[in-house]
């Protein structure tokens, strides 16, 4: 599906009591694995009329919210959690293989796999990105020193997001105050830093704390553009009542190509994926409810914004054909059709 979708229509919904924070697809099927606030991993086959989730099990597991999940090579899944632990899983048997305790000193926010599936990257609030060998679970490299542990206002910062470049040679990380680092995977050196401070709202007068951060980051399929997402310039930071934000960089030049904000639909962007063809990107998130923004990458403009029927979306992935998405969110896992004009 190369055409820019005009509608996002919910085709299937699995209502849940828990929150689904992350997901991984199973190529060649409609099976989706998601990480949950119940500290578990669950798989559901959305091809079934009445899909029933099946839980993963085994010697190793999590004890808190599962916030990161990536599919590596060799039929392996790697999950990360607020419990600071990474767990390796056999995707077919749905059983755990190994765990790395204290993979981070603080809460793990995201786990993502390299394009060839041999590495996974994890980011946590210790402000370090760690690269792990998918096959044996060994630590390959630490990418550290790029993100301050404190905000300018002397509060703990958070390292929310990471993404590999399409060729797997680079990895970008982004934090709460809008600082972005592009790293060279091979040696852990910093290639470029970028800033999107608009994603961080510090209220010095009325409430004296902050909200926001870059929650989503993605390279375009050609590797030229880097998109980050979050929320910014919120009047009342008690709520997610501000415009969803995207900033598009020509990262090699260090230039901002576009600063985009939603109109009527408000909330925070939790995940960005470029469509495989590269002609458009989709950003999802929300406040209480879900939101979806479609950006035409030829014009770098938001061409549609949708309030999704389901609640806040935490993660999504394209279907194999690219004509639909699976969404993990608050109290739901859903499938949607992308309807072109």
């Amino acid at each position: 599906m190369e055409k820019i979708p005009e509608k996002i229509e919910e085709s299937k919904k699995l209502s849940r009591q828990d929150m689904a924070f992350c997901l991984a697809t199973h190529p060649g099927s409609e099976r989706v694995v998601f990480g949950s606030s119940d500290a578990g991993l669950h798989e559901v086959d959305l091809a079934q009329e009445n899909p029933e989730p099946v839980s993963f099990s085994g010697e190793h597991g999590h004890s808190s919210y599962v916030t990161g999940l990536a599919r590596g090579s060799g039929g392996l899944l790697v999950s990360g959690s607020y419990d600071r632990r990474l767990v390796w899983w056999n995707a077919e048997t749905r059983t755990s293989i190994r765990a790395v305790d204290n993979a981070h000193e603080k809460w793990i926010r995201q786990v993502t796999a390299s394009p060839d599936g041999t590495l996974v990257a994890s980011v946590g609030d210790d402000m370090i990105c760690r690269l792990w060998n998918v096959a044996d679970g060994k630590l390959v490299r630490e990418l550290k020193g790029g993100h301050a542990t404190e905000t300018p206002h002397h509060y703990p910062s958070m390292l929310y997001a990471c993404a590999f470049s399409p060729d797997g040679e680079l990895l970008a990380t982004a934090d709460r105050v809008g600082h972005i680092v592009v790293w060279k995977v091979a040696d852990g050196s910093q290639v470029r830093t970028l800033e999107a401070p608009v994603m961080y709202t510090w209220d010095p007068d009325r409430r004296r704390h902050s909200i926001g951060g870059i929650r989503a980051i993605a390279f375009s399929p050609d590797g030229r553009q880097l998109a980050v997402g979050g929320i910014g310039q919120i009047g009342n930071i008690d709520h997610l009542g501000g415009p969803a934000r995207l900033r598009l960089f020509d990262w090699e030049k260090g230039e901002t190509e576009a600063e985009l904000e939603s109109g009527e639909v408000q909330g925070i962007v939790e995940r960005i994926h470029y469509h495989p063809g590269g002609k458009w990107l989709l950003a999802m998130g929300g406040d209480h409810k879900g939101l979806a923004l479609v950006v035409d990458t030829a014009t770098n403009k938001i061409v549609s914004e949708t309030r999704t029927p389901a609640n806040h979306a935490h993660d999504f992935a394209f279907t194999d054909a690219g004509d639909g998405i699976y969404v993990a969110g608050h109290n739901h896992l859903t499938a949607h059709d992308l309807v072109a004009g």
């Binding site: 509060y155 703990p156 951060g213 008690d238």
Partner: peptide
């Protein structure tokens, strides 16, 4: 010490304010 009214992003707000 105001303002703890975390209707949104409670866990981020508390990760920021409780250590203080």
């Amino acid at each position: 010490r105001a303002w703890w009214d975390s209707h949104g992003q409670n866990f981020e707000t508390h990760a920021e304010m409780v250590p203080e």
